[in-house]
């Protein structure tokens, strides 16, 4: 009942820092898609949500996917809907991009690039960290 959840907007609930860590490539396993769905659901609870992409997780954000040939949904487009869900804190680890020959220009959404040290500090600040 998302309709009811959404009517509770503006409640005085406790806001915690949630971080969702994405470390898997898309399509090969279901983790990337499931993680994204959990994040979309979490948006209904008005928490302080960040999404992190490290290791093979950076592959989730590659521009120009065409999934017709493997007959699965191209959910890379859904990352562009996150802004509408007020999820705007997207972080990508620089070392993971470097190891895969990728740059920010290869990604489908605007992200903040952090090095491992910065990422570690951000992770340490969280109340809840959930990994996919």
């Amino acid at each position: 009942m998302s309709d009811m959840m959404d009517d509770m907007d503006g409640g005085e609930g406790v806001v915690k820092k949630f971080m969702f860590v994405n470390r898997k490539a898309p399509h090969g396993t279901v983790y990337a898609l499931e993680g994204l769905e959990v994040v979309l659901i979490s948006a209904a609870f008005d928490q302080d949500v960040s999404m992190v992409f490290t290791d093979d997780g950076v592959y989730e954000l590659i521009k120009g996917m065409n999934t017709k040939g493997i007959e699965v949904k191209d959910f890379s487009k859904t990352y562009r809907a996150l802004e509408g869900y007020d999820i705007e804190k997207l972080y990508v680890e620089k070392e993971s991009m470097d190891a895969r020959g990728l740059t920010e220009d290869d990604l489908i959404v605007d992200v903040t690039v952090l090095d491992s040290g910065e990422m570690a500090s951000l992770m340490a600040e969280q109340d809840v960290v959930i990994s996919f």
Partner: peptide, 13 residues
């Protein structure tokens, strides 16, 4: 496999 490269946006690389 081409369809897997396409699906991952990697065909040009």
């Amino acid at each position: 496999l081409g369809p897997d490269l396409d699906a991952r946006g990697m065909a040009a690389r």
